[in-house]
């Protein structure tokens, strides 16, 4: 599963961490772990910021976390106007690291910073080319 299928519009079809998309298609949320110094990365990196090692391994994330902040996008950029308005959340993952994504099936009034959430891998089925993403849901 090439990385180009990750996201509604993908700007970087090439990356050293393209296996992320393979795992996501299998329902797994994966980050990387530096084999040398142990630093964990989500989003995954192929190269360690801390010790400059390029030897990392994949580790699975639980998807559990807390909502760090959010916003409802009314004025959407080109390519996203068809799904606007949409709510973006930033999640502090339980194992460390953060991600940003759409908040899925949570009513607007229930969205609270600090709430516990779960990140769920998804596939855009209604779109011709398979697109992978994840949403932020109630646990």
């Amino acid at each position: 599963m090439p990385f180009k299928y990750f996201g509604k519009i993908n700007f970087t079809p090439y990356t050293k961490v393209d296996k992320f998309a393979d795992y996501l298609q299998k329902g797994k949320l994966m980050g990387t772990h530096c084999k040398k110094c142990g630093e964990k990365y989500f989003p995954p990196r192929a190269d360690c910021i801390k010790c400059l090692s390029d030897d990392v391994k994949w580790i699975e994330y639980s998807g559990r976390g807390t909502l760090h902040s959010y916003t409802k996008i009314n004025a959407a950029p080109k390519g996203f106007d068809d799904i606007a308005p949409y709510i973006l959340g930033v999640v502090d993952l339980e194992e460390g690291g953060r991600l940003i994504s759409w908040i899925g099936d949570i009513p607007d009034d229930d969205i609270k910073i600090g709430m516990e959430i779960k990140v769920v891998p998804r596939i855009f089925e209604e779109i011709e080319e398979i697109k992978l993403y994840y949403t932020i849901e109630k646990p």
Partner: peptide
């Protein structure tokens, strides 16, 4: 690679 693919915007970041 990890953010703009979800339709982030400039005002959106400052809103966060």
């Amino acid at each position: 690679q990890w953010e703009s693919i979800f339709g982030t915007t400039f005002p959106g970041y400052y809103a966060l």
